[in-house]
């Protein structure tokens, strides 16, 4: 699994020395079930299930904060995308589009909806 993620993200996950700077600065970390640095950690120690089942990869909104600060130059944004894609390509959606309320649909800007569908559905 780690090799698949490395291939899709073009990031060397072995370079991560677990300093945690990604997690420390992540604006969405409060709602995550595992820390962004732990996403890499579980892949490093060969526990991909933890990563595939976590909420973290779906909460990550590609804000690139971790990417610009990583001392080892790992673009974690791309790592998260790779893991999401591994799930989505099994045709497993993270959200059910039909369950989005009418209220939300009419109020949020299109960019929010398109982005949501791109990131959270197969």
């Amino acid at each position: 699994m780690i090799n698949k993620v490395i291939e899709l993200s073009e990031q060397n996950l072995y370079a991560c020395y677990q300093c945690g700077k990604c997690s420390a600065g992540c604006p969405s970390v409060k709602l995550m079930d595992i820390m962004p640095n732990q996403v890499i950690r579980y892949l490093q120690i060969g526990k991909p299930d933890k990563v595939l089942q976590c909420k973290t990869i779906w909460i990550c909104a590609s804000c690139y904060t971790c990417s610009v600060r990583c001392p080892r130059g790992i673009d974690l944004t791309r790592v998260m995308e790779a893991i999401r894609l591994i799930q989505l390509r099994k045709n497993i959606d993270y959200i059910k589009v039909r369950e989005i309320s009418e209220d939300v649909l009419v109020s949020v800007p299109q960019i929010a909806l398109v982005a949501e569908f791109r990131k959270h559905t197969a």
């Binding site: 700077k21 420390a24 820390m35 640095n37």
Partner: peptide, 11 residues
């Protein structure tokens, strides 16, 4: 803005 990587908690 920090993190305790030993407990896995943002701080």
């Amino acid at each position: 803005l920090a993190v305790d990587t030993l407990t896995g908690e943002p701080l």
